[in-house]
């Protein structure tokens, strides 16, 4: 019952956020850094920074494929396709226009952050080539924010919540919401480093980009958190 109360409060907060957002004429989207936004040196940097995580993910993948029965590849691909379709789902009117959940939270709960970093890269590749979202040169940067920072934050939050005996639904909500939100905070960081403010430097730029991305993403992050809880509970109840 307490959970229902929390849910209602959260819905109210979401509502308030949506009202707030509707006051501004921006279209809010799940945002990846686009092709051409980052200079070549940074594109390469992010590829290099993401590489160890990706390689670790590949190693985890290998383990799963070897340890379980031979059909594991098919299961992983089915789950990956599920995450892709979820991430390309438009949630109409949640924010007054369209938004896309990242599906990261659910993926993290399902596989843990290791495998998610590989599946996430494939999803990003599909998004760049099939949906025209994101980009190929910026794939490394987006991988870092969406499939490395997001899942790690989500995973840690979830573990921490469980450690402190927080209700499972609330833990999942926080996991998904913060996984989503931290993705965009990271995006803001990534842009701030490349485009420092001419007068006040990187920190000021960070505040600007956080203002733009992190705040506009709050309702979407909350929506994704709620969605993940609903899905999780439905899956459990069946």
């Amino acid at each position: 019952m307490q959970f229902k109360k929390i849910l209602k409060t959260l819905l109210a907060i979401t509502g308030a956020m949506i009202f707030f957002l509707l006051a501004f004429p921006t279209r809010v989207q799940a945002m990846h850094i686009m092709e051409g936004m980052l200079p070549p040196s940074w594109c390469i940097n992010w590829y290099v920074i993401s590489a160890p995580f990706f390689i670790y993910g590949l190693y985890r993948l290998q383990k799963i494929i070897q340890s379980s029965q031979k059909n594991a590849k098919v299961m992983l691909a089915l789950c990956g396709a599920f995450v892709f379709v979820l991430s390309s789902l438009k949630l109409p009117s949640v924010t007054g226009s369209c938004s896309h959940p990242t599906g990261v939270g659910l993926g993290t709960v399902m596989f843990g952050p290791g495998v998610m970093s590989v599946i996430g890269v494939i999803v990003l590749l599909f998004q760049a080539l099939l949906l025209a979202h994101g980009g190929l040169t910026t794939l490394g940067a987006n991988e870092f924010s969406m499939t490395i920072i997001g899942p790690i934050v989500g995973f840690l939050v979830y573990k921490l919540c469980r450690r402190f005996k927080v209700n499972r639904s609330v833990s999942i909500f926080l996991c998904a919401m913060l996984a989503d939100w931290s993705t965009y905070i990271t995006t803001a960081f990534q842009l701030a480093i490349v485009f420092p403010d001419p007068h006040a430097g990187v920190m000021a730029a960070l505040i600007k980009f956080l203002g733009i991305f992190a705040i506009t993403q709050i309702p979407l992050a909350i929506a994704e958190g709620l969605l993940t809880v609903i899905v999780y509970n439905l899956v459990i109840s069946n």
Partner: peptide
């Protein structure tokens, strides 16, 4: 309803 239905859809 959108949130609820999206949840069912995902499930």
């Amino acid at each position: 309803l959108t949130l609820h239905s999206s949840g069912i859809l995902a499930q």
